[in-house]
Amino acid sequence: MSASDGVAARAVDVWKKYGSGDAAVTALAGVSVDLEKSRFTAIMGPSGSGKSTLMHCLAGLDDVTGGEVWIGDTKVTGLKDRGLTELRRDKVGFIFQQFNLLPTLTAEENITLPLSIGGKKVDRAWFDVVVDTVGLRDRLTHRPTQLSGGQQQRVACARALVSRPDVVFADEPTGNLDSQSGAEVLGFLQRSAREFGQTIVMVTHDPNAASYADRVIFLKDGQIVRELLSPSAEEVLETMKHLDDVAVPHV
């Protein structure tokens, strides 16, 4: 099986268990999902629902206990470290909640880091577009310590986009930001999906953040339980409140 056209990343019956025997914890219990290209997808769920694990598995940061993960035409499951490293370098972009930048590098060097690691040339035109979109033109020579939290996260966004990856994974990207900076970052992610056709997958527990997404997937106890398309923040909040009512098959 391969990911068909229009799908940037795909999970097929993915299981993830930690530990063994009585102490075994099932984090993912047979998750299957297609993440369409050029879409901004949010993964939501309460703590312990498995949303971060799902993202880690999709991004090749963690291996799966069962099932398959694909990114584009590449089967992630079964890749060795070298293959995974190249996958992350060439096909995936990351935005983390905190500690996103290298303190020894300038903003510009941080943005182009994935390209320089891979020994690739920077597409200056695209770089300019990305930098102008995140509004960092006058901050390029600054070190991370000289930037505010919101600016740092925008540098991280620019870095994730500059190599035109198949998918950008964002793990609680606004978790450490004030609402104003958070809104800027989310707005930028939304625009990159809409204007540049960038596929974005974001894990969040903030209904407001999820409302920027085109599609919201709800996880509970390691399974996908609901899905909303272009919801408002209120709809997301409402759904979250009633997740407990959803019957989950016992695993």
Partner: peptide
């Protein structure tokens, strides 16, 4: 972080 963004 470096490993996550693709450093070998």
């Amino acid at each position: 972080l470096l490993r996550a963004i693709g450093m070998r």
